[in-house]
Design a protein around this nucleic acid. Structure first.
Lengths: 194, 194
DNA sequence: GTCTATATCCAGATAGAC
DNA sequence: GTCTATCTGGATATAGAC
């Protein structure tokens, strides 16, 4: 039969994580404090330890949630049958995901919280998301490491510049289609240079 | 006549900044503490206030030093007379500078220290460095904002991926020449697409 | 210029009553 | 499961003696 107690516990955990996201968006991932977090959910900071073993465990849960959100969107996207168009759609989705929430991007893709590393289970989710992009490249015959690395670099560069130098605008984000053109023209095996 | 007192003061300031760089490299820019810094130079943390008005003033001095280092290297470089080759050399220099010291890169080009913004004087140095790249692009007829923005995005992307995912290796950095090829082929006005 | 002493505030985490 | 109380340690910064 249903375990009402553990259901309630899970609901509270979810509520705590939701409040944590809000704080992380306001102060940045490194600025999260258990005091503030407790206050948000109407608890003393110490009581959070009934739900999470440590502050790092909270970060880890946020990391996993962020990855799952990305995986969900990738799964929900209806990609074109044309591999080139599908890749383009996939990269647009990554850029949109990464640029819409700087704090989440920082938590998932940069190393900005001193001492925090995601658990293997959580990290596996991030790898899974990247595997999607890898497969889309492979469908175009782009299977060398440098193909993926150059692709991730271009995407990461647009997002990094956007966040650092124009956080409220779209100065770099709007270049995404041009950047993808550039990338695909360059990587296309048929017109390989050098 | 020489002011031995102020010479000594300047020497101590320089020593403090050197120790600050070491700490920042070890702990990241956000991890710098005045206690540790004082200990490194054989002082109590409070005594540092004789040399700098605040912790932010120390960050600002580091920021300015980092910019000057980059400007010095740009000034010392002997660039080719061929504008395309000169740009290539310039971008290689940026990538080398940014990748050799992650902490300095973070301090200069990312917004990672809560509450810190460089003073106008210091920021002007960063702008000056970027103007160099802008001029090199202009020498190739690339004067639109998107030309510079795409260029900085590619450079920033390589460096960001390098630091975040392969901090001790060269997995992305070694792609710099290929990335520059890609960029220049794409931006070259003579073969403009779209 | 450097020290001691101190102010003020914050952090993460644990013990134990209820 | 939540609380009070507490531990331990950290931070930046100021006042004033020497």
């Amino acid at each position: 039969m249903r375990d009402r107690r553990s259901e309630r516990n899970a609901a509270t955990r979810a509520e705590i994580l939701e409040a944590a996201w809000a704080l992380v968006r306001e102060e940045g991932p490194a600025g999260l404090s258990l005091r503030d977090l407790g206050r948000r959910v109407g608890m003393r900071a110490q009581s959070l330890y009934s739900y999470f073993d440590s502050k790092h465990a909270i970060y880890d849960a946020l990391f996993a949630q962020g990855c799952r959100e990305l995986l969900d969107r990738l799964a929900a996207a209806r990609f074109s049958d044309d591999p080139a168009e599908a890749l383009r759609q996939g990269l647009r989705l990554w850029v949109a995901f990464a640029s819409e929430d700087p704090a989440r991007y920082q938590l998932l893709f940069q190393r900005t919280i001193p001492g925090f590393e995601p658990s293997p289970q959580s990290y596996a989710l991030a790898v899974e998301a990247l595997d999607g992009a890898k497969a889309q490249l492979a469908a175009l015959g782009l299977t060398e490491p440098r193909h993926l690395d150059l692709t991730t670099a271009v995407v990461a560069g647009l997002v990094a510049q956007q966040h650092a130098n124009d956080p409220t605008g779209d100065r770099w984000i709007r270049l995404v289609d041009e950047a993808i053109d550039m990338l695909m023209d360059h990587l296309k095996p048929r017109r390989r240079r050098r």
